[in-house]
Amino acid sequence: MISCIALMLFNFAMIHYSKSKNTPSTSEINKWKLVLYRQVIKSPGVQPNQLKHAKFLLRKLSKPENLVAYAQALQCLKSEFPEAYSDYIQKEHTVFQRLAYMYSKKPRIERTCYADFIGTFPLVAGDTPGQLVDTLISYIDDSNIHCRTKVLGALCSIGSVHGVANVLQLIHDRGLFMHHQLLTNELSNFSGDKEILGEYLWRESRQWNDNITVSVIQFITRFSSRYRDTFLPVLQDSSASPEVRSAVIRYYGEHMYEPVRLILTEFITNPTDSSLTAAAESVLALYPASAPESSVIQEQELPELNWYMQHNTRPPFLSWAINKLVGNSAV
């Protein structure tokens, strides 16, 4: 009974304690700000000691709770003195590399935290040390979705094509779960040349599973209209999976291409898969009316067509919007 009362008191004490400890306190952040500002703002007669600062960072930042407070102080520096921040990040990149290695030996959640840190404060593209990228990729060993997402996010923030492709390859090889929506969202934050990344990923995606391929197509859909011809054979390839073909159809919704109109119409008139038909319907509705095709559709008996295609003359905005929001679930 005494133990139970002690437990109860423990809980109440924790309620009180946790109120102040869930986020780094202002004083902790201010301490870090002081350290940072002393290091980056040049005062007459005072020469910042680079080596001492590096050692201090390595010692302190190996604890994730310090890393969280440091990140907030660094954010202040970034917004108040952007140039000083850039210089600082470049100067300290070896520290971040060594920390990345130290964190690779830590539990998942701490690795994830560090990947998140790198994603928030990426090294300037071009100065990217391969060692950091390789260490981040190694985080994928024994990872969870959180960790994979943050590692991919960090590599995208850094702008490493090789790193991003390697992570996707590992996800494929090990059969790890990452819904295509998560992949697409992270890829969209790629800070380097998206055309180069898109081209590389599309080339590699032939060997990856449909889920990753869909994410690559969705990523390309968001920024490039150069794939109209490239995707056409996939659209026509009946051996390709419906998920991949649906993603291609939606690409043609964003980047209109007149030659696909007939193919899309075919998906409606001769339906083979309900997801393809639904995607084709919604995308075709966005294409400017073309008298011959419209009349062809209306003249036929099309029991599979949705209510709005049969009864309405207005575009099936609802279906298009639902398809756009919902996408397709490849898993």
């Binding site: 924790m14 400890k21 869930n22 969280v68």
Partner: peptide
Amino acid sequence: NRMLKFRNKL
């Protein structure tokens, strides 16, 4: 509770 401060970021 110990993990909460990291989780908030994740």
